[in-house]
Structure formats: C-alpha cells, structure tokens
Amino acid sequence: MDTPLDRLTEQFRRLPGIGIKTARKLAYYIVQEPPERVDAFVAAIRNAKETMKFCSVCFNLSSQDPCPICSDSKRDHSVICVVETPQDVMAIERSGDYHGVYHVLHGALSPLDGVGVEDLRIKELIQRLNDPEVKEVILATDPDVEGEATALYLARLLKTAGIRVTRIARGLPMGGDIEYADEATLAGAVANRQEM
C-alpha cells in the first residue's frame, strides 16, 4: 500500500545516513506537528534550496557570491585549504585556528565509483594559483583511500607550480585511547609528532 505517510517516509529515507526506522520516525513526527511548524519547515527547505549557491571562487555553499570567507579582507588569502566538501569547511572553521581561505573539490578521486579528475574542482584550483598572492596550499582531504589518492595527485600537480604544498597532520583524537587506535592512525601520530 502506498499511503502519503509511506511516500513521506521514502523521501526521508533518501537523505544520507537515514535508515528506514529513522525515516519512519521522522515521517510520523512531521504529520503530528501543527500545520504552522510544518509550513515553517517546508519554507526553510525551499528558502535554503533557492538561496544557497556555490561561491564562484572557492565553491563552498553560501547565500552570497563570493562567499563571506572569500570576501573577508582580514583572512589570509595567501593560504588555500583544499577540502572535499562544504561540511569540511564548517568543521575547520569551528576550530577557530585557521584564518586562510578554502577551495572545495566536491569529492575525492575514486576510479571505482567513476570519480575522476574532471569530476572535481581541480581545474578551478589550478586557475586560483595564477594569483601571485597564493603562497601555500594545505591539503585537507579525508584520511581514507580516496582522500589520500586525491592529496597525492594534487601534491604532484601543485609542486610544479612552485607553491608550498602541505598536508594536515594525522593522529590521535583528543580524549582517545592509544590502545584502541588503528595502526594507520598510530603511524600518522608518530610520523607527525611535534617538538615540545
């Protein structure tokens, strides 16, 4: 049977990380909410979809173009941090320690999934390096197979541009136990140790 509740459940299920039980729970929640709260929810979705766009400089999601980060003259435009997704920008910004600008690739190299160089915003990154102000590119891709492959590809490509290329350090999370860390994380932590 295909009821309106089933169709709503299926729409929630299409969201990343939402399984059938959570989708059903969300659908039941929405239909039990007062109409004005449902209207506000729908309006927020529609407004975000209509107003959010990709920054023409860094390709982060923003309601303005260029985005507030690229437009900020107080930020260090000589350093570009390359990330896979807009969510990565938000995560780094929450740290409060990075004051450069970003470049969002919108993915990582993954030949098995059909994601190649032409599918990422690499060409646009190379164009940004024509600006003589740019002195360093920080590669902040995920520490998984695809992220590492992307970082290695970009490092080789960018070395020819004569710009400093660095990779974010890898290691143990704050509050983590060494005995539960995997070998790759421990190897990164030891290799990227710092003077005290």
Score class of each variant (00 low, 15 high):
residue 3 T to E: 12
residue 3 T to H: 09
residue 3 T to W: 08
residue 6 D to P: 04
residue 14 R to Y: 07
residue 15 L to Q: 00
residue 15 L to V: 00
residue 18 I to N: 02
residue 18 I to E: 00
residue 19 G to I: 00
residue 21 K to D: 00
residue 21 K to Q: 01
residue 21 K to A: 00
residue 21 K to V: 00
residue 22 T to L: 02
residue 25 K to D: 05
residue 27 A to Q: 05
residue 32 Q to I: 01
residue 33 E to R: 06
residue 37 R to Y: 03
residue 40 A to N: 04
residue 42 V to L: 13
residue 43 A to N: 11
residue 44 A to M: 06
residue 45 I to K: 00
residue 49 K to I: 11
residue 50 E to C: 01
residue 52 M to G: 00
residue 52 M to T: 14
residue 54 F to E: 15
residue 55 C to V: 05
residue 56 S to Q: 10
residue 57 V to H: 03
residue 58 C to G: 07
residue 59 F to C: 03
residue 60 N to P: 09
residue 60 N to V: 05
residue 61 L to R: 09
residue 61 L to Y: 12
residue 63 S to Q: 13
residue 64 Q to V: 13
residue 69 I to R: 04
residue 71 S to T: 08
residue 72 D to Y: 10
residue 73 S to W: 01
residue 78 S to I: 06
residue 78 S to W: 06
residue 78 S to P: 10
residue 83 V to Y: 05
residue 84 E to A: 14
residue 84 E to K: 03
residue 89 V to Y: 00
residue 90 M to E: 11
residue 93 E to L: 02
residue 93 E to S: 03
residue 95 S to Q: 10
residue 98 Y to R: 05
residue 100 G to F: 08
residue 104 V to K: 05
residue 104 V to P: 02
residue 109 L to D: 06
residue 110 S to N: 15
residue 110 S to F: 12
residue 111 P to A: 13
residue 112 L to M: 15
residue 117 V to P: 13
residue 120 L to T: 07
residue 121 R to Q: 15
residue 123 K to E: 15
residue 127 Q to M: 14
residue 127 Q to P: 02
residue 127 Q to L: 14
residue 128 R to F: 11
residue 128 R to A: 11
residue 132 P to L: 12
residue 132 P to S: 14
residue 132 P to W: 05
residue 132 P to H: 11
residue 133 E to A: 08
residue 134 V to Q: 12
residue 134 V to E: 12
residue 134 V to A: 12
residue 135 K to M: 03
residue 136 E to I: 05
residue 138 I to F: 01
residue 140 A to P: 03
residue 141 T to M: 03
residue 145 V to F: 02
residue 146 E to H: 06
residue 150 T to F: 03
residue 154 L to E: 10
residue 155 A to D: 14
residue 155 A to N: 14
residue 156 R to Q: 14
residue 159 K to A: 14
residue 160 T to D: 15
residue 162 G to M: 02
residue 165 V to W: 05
residue 166 T to M: 10
residue 168 I to A: 06
residue 174 M to F: 11
residue 175 G to P: 10
residue 175 G to K: 07
residue 182 D to E: 06
residue 183 E to Q: 15
residue 185 T to P: 07
residue 190 V to Y: 12
residue 196 M to V: 15
